[in-house]
Design a protein around this nucleic acid. Structure first.
Lengths: 219, 219
DNA sequence: AATAAAAGTGAGTAATCACTCACTTTTATG
DNA sequence: CATAAAAGTGAGTGATTACTCACTTTTATT
């Protein structure tokens, strides 16, 4: 009935980011996220991570074979948790079941939801954006989740919205790029580039929704 | 009469990226750009740069005091050359002189122009996007150029377009964020994330222009 | 309580790093 | 041509790196 939550639970268990964690292991993950976000993966040393985690350096390598293994263990579960709800089954079904005027509230729901998630995980978002470029393993994982899981559902929803006359007849890839640019552009500006500005979050979210909606409206 | 070109010439001379360069120095810059773009600044070694440039390692430090000095020398002139033409005097004047229906062709001109520049300098774009996060000097330089130079002209043009009924009455900061998200989202997807796809560049540019225009149109 | 497995430790190590410096070669100047 | 300044060199250096390993401590199992 709620397959999104099921999926999330499965994701969490599979990698054990919040399950079966030794206290020291949790300290290591916390310290690593902080330091990776601050100075970048390549400029972070395992000795500094150990120090901030109040742990001996050897303890890190007891749980993670290499420093890169530590990065992967941090980043891949986050990537899935960030991307999947973008167009998870729950949202997609809504597009098909409800009247076509729901495009606006669908966008609004997604954006609010991902906004809250980004707010809680800003350092992780930063790490992913920074390190994706240099680690093929992460790019592969992105492909697996986005191309095979998110993209098809995104397309299906768009096709339906086009039929309902809600969205212009442009290539799906183009539309998806535009939506993702607007959403990610907002989240990155809000949480990475200028987190300390006086943001009127509700308004910015609604303005962004309106921007996407009118930008993609059938003329 | 053509103050954009004057400005560009001044920028080029001031740092001497293409003037007064020893042949070996040019080789060093070329190799550094390549390697920084490939593996990131922190993971690039001066020995590897020297090797690819066919130069002794000491030669690098004859011209650049530190490795970071080499990065700065590469990145700051590019940053200015990339940002200034976004809303340089030449473009802004056009908004004030020509009829208000010119919003579309203004966007189109800017996007085509920056597209061509990004196409020629994709590795540099990659380096800037990656390294901005970790080098306060680069953030400062960004502030100097964008906030003090580009942003005010951007605002003036928007105010005029709002008066002409071409653009919705939202906060300028919000509108600028949306335009920059759409433009950068396109350039990053096109040249960084998926440069090898079969792109119909002219169409994507026009679609992006239309997306921005309708997204910001007065309703 | 006995025993084994898992978790934790920190000194040690080989490799790599950015950078220096005494020296040679090339270029510019009068 | 003489001379000095600028450009180029590469072996050398001290600091830092990710990772190992022999050992101790804690936890789980019977």
């Amino acid at each position: 009935m709620n397959d999104l939550k099921d999926m999330m639970r499965a994701l969490e268990q599979e990698d054990g980011e919040e399950k079966n964690l030794t206290p020291k292991q949790a300290q290591i993950l916390k310290a690593a996220v902080e330091i990776f976000a601050e100075k970048g993966y390549a400029s972070s040393s395992t000795s500094e991570i150990a120090a901030r985690a109040n742990v001996a350096e050897g303890t890190i390598f007891r749980h993670y074979k290499t420093k890169k293994d530590l990065l992967i263990s941090i980043v891949t579960p986050f990537m899935a948790k960030f991307m999947v709800p973008f167009f998870a089954a729950r949202f997609t079904r809504r597009v098909f079941d409800e009247p076509p005027e729901e495009f606006r509230s669908l966008l609004s729901t997604i954006l609010k939801d991902r906004f809250a998630f980004a707010a809680e995980n800003a350092p992780l978002l930063r790490i992913v954006l920074q390190e994706m470029a240099f680690h093929p393993e992460l790019q592969q994982r992105f492909q697996d989740v986005f191309i095979k899981d998110v993209y098809p559902k995104f397309e299906a929803a768009l096709d339906r919205l086009k039929q309902g006359g809600q969205v212009v007849d442009k290539p799906n890839s183009t539309i998806i790029r535009m939506i993702m640019s607007a959403v990610m552009g907002f989240l990155i500006t809000r949480f990475i580039l200028s987190p300390d500005l006086d943001w009127d979050d509700e308004r910015e979210i609604e303005e962004t929704v309106a921007f996407i909606m009118y930008g993609l409206a059938e003329k």
